[in-house]
Design a protein around this nucleic acid. Structure first.
Lengths: 143, 143
DNA sequence: CCTTGACTTGAAGTTGACTTCAACTCGTAC
DNA sequence: GTACGAGTTGAAGTCAACTTCAAGTCAAGG
């Protein structure tokens, strides 16, 4: 497959594919003239990369889960750890969501007088809420 | 309060406070010599900013929720919308977490043969999983 | 008076994951 | 044989939210 074909099948832009190759995340199987040729297996690798990103992994981390041949060699413990991380994130997000909803429904004339909003503010001020996550996330299937 | 005091109370670095001021997110009440002085109210504003960040708002969005005087003027509908967004994100994250856990527990010799892992991969490949979220998130209180 | 330390400034640097660009090379079609 | 479209390259640009830096300004203490 040439790069356009891979891009079409995966939705990953050609520029990104070249970038991934440079980063050692995927590999082309030789060239036809000047053009890269990819084995069909690259589609699976790209799926794996997408999954890793959805799970909140950096490209560096994802690379560390790939054998030199591109096959995944994934530590099950790492998967479980990542799941734990995501669960913790979910917990925090639910707290924020609940707080926001409460504040949205709060009948106080201004948020300055809404106790639940104040509570949220206090939590935020205390540093209990994270300001920035390490990284990207996911789009998801089952909507 | 001077900038160091605000920094100490809030944990927000002085450099960030200056940055926020430049961005119009907070305001100082005059100077003492060359040094900024802040009214205590700035602590509340910073709490609000933290909360906004935890809810996934960009600084631009947060600014749009502030009146020129720094008081929040928050659209309740917007809060509800944000809560919806967060809930949707939670849904996606839970799918990923479940998938990861399943894969971690999967007894197949390699993930290449694990059906649930394959399913996850397929979801990721389909673009159902987001690669990058718009932005930061939260750290959270109730751990 | 001079040093010290905390503050000031605007400009430039950082990070991660890409995208965009100019300049170039092919294979194919006319 | 030449124009075209699609690929190639390395370098530079983008975005957000900051941080870092050099150079300068003060107030207070010794």
């Amino acid at each position: 497959m040439d790069i356009a074909e891979v891009a079409k099948h995966t939705g990953v832009p050609a520029s990104t594919l070249r970038y991934y190759e440079k980063q050692g995340l995927i590999a082309s199987v030789g060239r036809q003239g000047i053009r890269r040729r990819f084995a069909p297996g690259v589609l699976d690798q790209l799926a794996l990369i997408s999954l890793g990103q959805a799970a909140g992994l950096s490209l560096d981390e994802i690379r560390s889960m790939l054998l030199p041949n591109g096959q995944p060699s994934i530590d099950r413990q790492m998967l479980a750890d990542k799941a734990d991380e995501i669960d913790a994130l979910i917990k925090r997000l639910r707290a924020v969501s609940r707080g926001l909803r409460h504040a949205a429904a709060c009948p106080a004339p201004s948020h300055a007088e809404c106790p639940s909003f104040q509570k949220l503010l206090k939590a935020a001020a205390s540093g209990a809420l994270e300001k920035r996550w390490r990284r990207p996330g996911l789009k998801l299937p089952y909507k």
